[in-house]
Design a protein around this nucleic acid. Structure first.
Lengths: 216, 216
DNA sequence: TAGATTGTTAATCGATTAACAATC
DNA sequence: TAGATTGTTAATCGATTAACAATC
């Protein structure tokens, strides 16, 4: 009896990383779906994934599909949205007003994700006080004030790799608890800090490798 | 005898995906390393990975380290560079002159990767003929000419998801063989085309999930 | 009822970790 | 030689695929 409860508990809390990653894909296509019902076969077709895998993944959710019918798009989407915290607003700051930083500030999709970039910082005095979309670029000295004023918990790093570590440390000093890091470097931070690294440019090397391998 | 040869063959050709992904990280830190010798322990420290995993990964390479000594940085790096095709030039085109596209055009790291963006295209007539870094934005009609003129085999897609499929098809019609796709959508293309999807913005949802899970 | 689809359990495959032999 | 480090094989862990039962 005790053992079974433990097992159930475990099943609820353990979500395979690969599954979570695919949940992003499911969320994406379900958000665009305009039928009421969808089958695992249809989802698989859209994403080039086997339907068995879709069903296995979806079995980690509480909502169950109905045999012979399929899954109700809305209920599936609601639960995925909940997993990704789409019902809670999240305020973030961004450091580094280069092209990548600016492209993120202007990215319209964050609104749907309920992510709001409340301030944009840059080290370069010539950029400070200029406008990027709706934001004025601020100097790093203002970070502490902004973080406590807006209760920001997440920081985005879009600076060159040389300054990424220092920026991360500054963020943490000022109360940031999670970092979305676009600098191509491994940050050395306390284990309590959540870090998600986004390696944007390295992918072209994987592509180069795939091309060469294919040609052999 | 035959079986063993087959086995060896297999070992040479099969590189686990996870290992290839980490090879990117090894390449990155080795390129910045200025000592002559490095140990698996040191590599592991820099990347927060166990040294056993590093050694296992490196055992897929031809070059062997020396017990009690370590690995010669230069020889390791040479072989990783070879795997990622860093000795061959690759010409690519990019479609979509929004902020992300521009940030890629201006990214200085591609030079080291021996990747050259030879042309930048955009659908918007008001952008055509304007300058982005060293490039003039071209209309899509020029794509065919540019691809055959420069012998381009790779295309980068930085357009909104609505037009990504059409742009991909146009690229393929004009001779492109591999696509680096930054649009958050799954492209439907012939199996012969190599596609690498780069999901830049979805990562914030994974971060949101990690934050919520941690708080529970 | 028969057929279609979900959902679960078992089997397989792939990746990581552990143990330890090889060797400089 | 002793100690440190690589490299390989076996064990474990995690993810995917296969088989099939459940059910609408």
């Amino acid at each position: 009896m005790k053992l079974e409860m433990f097992k159930k508990d475990k099943q609820l809390s353990i979500l395979p990383k690969a599954t979570l990653q695919r949940f992003l894909l499911y969320q994406r296509i379900l958000a665009e779906e305009n039928t009421e019902i969808i089958s695992s076969e249809e989802i698989g077709k859209k994403l080039h994934l086997p339907s068995e895998l879709i069903r296995k993944d979806l079995s980690y959710l509480q909502y169950r599909g109905r045999p012979k019918i399929g899954y109700r798009v809305k209920l599936l989407l609601d639960e995925l949205n909940e997993i990704f915290g789409l019902s809670q607003k999240m305020k973030v700051i961004l450091v580094g007003a280069g092209h990548l930083g600016v492209s993120l500030v202007n990215y319209p999709g964050f609104k749907n994700y309920r992510v709001e970039i409340v301030a944009l910082f840059d080290h370069d005095p010539s950029k400070v006080d200029t406008l990027v979309g709706p934001l004025v670029i601020l100097p790093l000295e203002d970070m502490k004030r902004v973080i406590s004023r807006f209760k920001v918990t997440v920081g985005i790093i879009c600076v060159p790799k040389e300054s990424a570590q220092a920026v991360a440390e500054l963020m943490i000093q000022n109360g940031i608890e999670a970092i979305w890091n676009f600098a191509p470097t491994t940050l050395n931070l306390p284990k309590s800090i959540i870090v998600k690294n986004e390696d944007v440019t390295g992918g072209i090397l994987i592509l180069k490798h795939m091309i060469n391998k294919g040609k052999k």
